[in-house]
Amino acid sequence: MVFVLHRTYFPEGTQGILLYLGQFVCYTIELPWIQNKRNISCVPEGLYTLQKRYSQKFKHHIHLQDVPGRSLILLHPANDAIKELEGCIAPVSNHTGIGKGNSSRKAFHKLTSLVLPALAKNTHVQLRITSSLSYFRSQLFI
């Protein structure tokens, strides 16, 4: 099971669209790309294994495994990347500005309703992060 996150980068933040089997799941927001610096940058593009995680703050959420040079990179609700994220990814229902969205909990619930049952069945779940430009270039050569 592989989810694909297509990103577009801006100096103020990173916008994304999350797909599963080519179907829209939700939008995403993240911090801007700042050379993978801890707590202030989005994570590098790549393929990551997802695991479920629980904390008092976020309850049940999703953890990206083996992010180079980083730890505790999560998928969790947030509507403003600069104010609420420290390198994590937030699902949102709509983009309302660069690095901003709305109805994050609703989008997060939609995502976890797909991911958490699969993980409970020991299905291997991954997230492939790519830029929109990389994705569209790859489509030209199919």
Score class of each variant (00 low, 15 high):
Gly97Met: 01
Val2Lys: 12
Leu140Pro: 03
Lys57Asn: 11
Asn36Arg: 05
Leu64Asn: 07
Gly101Lys: 01
Ile129Phe: 06
Ala81Cys: 06
Val67Cys: 11
Leu18Gln: 09
Gln65Lys: 15
Ile40Tyr: 03
Cys88Phe: 04
Pro91Thr: 06
Thr8Tyr: 03
Asn39Gln: 05
Val115Pro: 05
Ser93Ile: 00
Gln35Ala: 14
Val2Ser: 12
Met1Gln: 13
Lys100Pro: 00
Phe108Leu: 03
Ala118Thr: 11
Ile40Trp: 02
Gly87Leu: 05
Glu84Tyr: 01
Gly46Leu: 10
Leu133Asp: 13
Lys100Val: 01
His76Phe: 04
Leu127His: 07
Tyr20Phe: 15
Leu74Ser: 04
Ala81Ile: 01
Ala107Cys: 10
Asn102Asp: 14
Ser71Val: 11
His63Phe: 14
Gln35Met: 09
Pro91Val: 03
Leu21His: 12
Arg70Gly: 10
Met1Pro: 13
Gly97Arg: 02
Phe10Lys: 08
Leu140Ala: 13
Ser131Asp: 07
Lys59Met: 12
Arg38Phe: 01
Ile73Tyr: 03
Gly16Trp: 02
Met1Ser: 15
Gln65Pro: 03
Phe3Met: 10
Tyr54His: 15
Leu64Thr: 07
Tyr135Glu: 11
Val125Met: 09
Arg128His: 15
Leu133Asn: 13
Thr8Trp: 10
Val43Ser: 06
Leu5Met: 11
Val125Arg: 08
His109Ile: 09
Ala120Val: 05
His61Arg: 04
Asp66Tyr: 11
His63Met: 11
Lys59Leu: 13
Lys52Met: 12
Tyr48Cys: 05
Cys26His: 02
Ser41Thr: 08
Gly101Asp: 05
Tyr27Lys: 14
Thr14Asp: 06
Val43Arg: 00
Ser71Thr: 13
Ile82Arg: 14
Gly22Trp: 06
Arg128Thr: 12
Lys37Tyr: 11
Asn36Ala: 08
Thr130Ser: 14
Ile129Arg: 00
Thr8Lys: 13
Lys121Gly: 08
Gly101Trp: 00
Val25Arg: 03
Leu75Met: 13
Val67Ser: 08
Ile34Tyr: 08
Ile142Thr: 12
Gln56Thr: 13
Met1Phe: 14
Arg137Tyr: 15
Lys52Cys: 09
Asn36Phe: 04
Pro68Cys: 06
Thr96Leu: 06
Glu45Trp: 00
Ile17Val: 15
Arg105Gln: 12
Ile29Phe: 03
Tyr135Gln: 11
Lys52Leu: 12
Phe141Tyr: 14
His95Thr: 01
Gly16Asp: 02
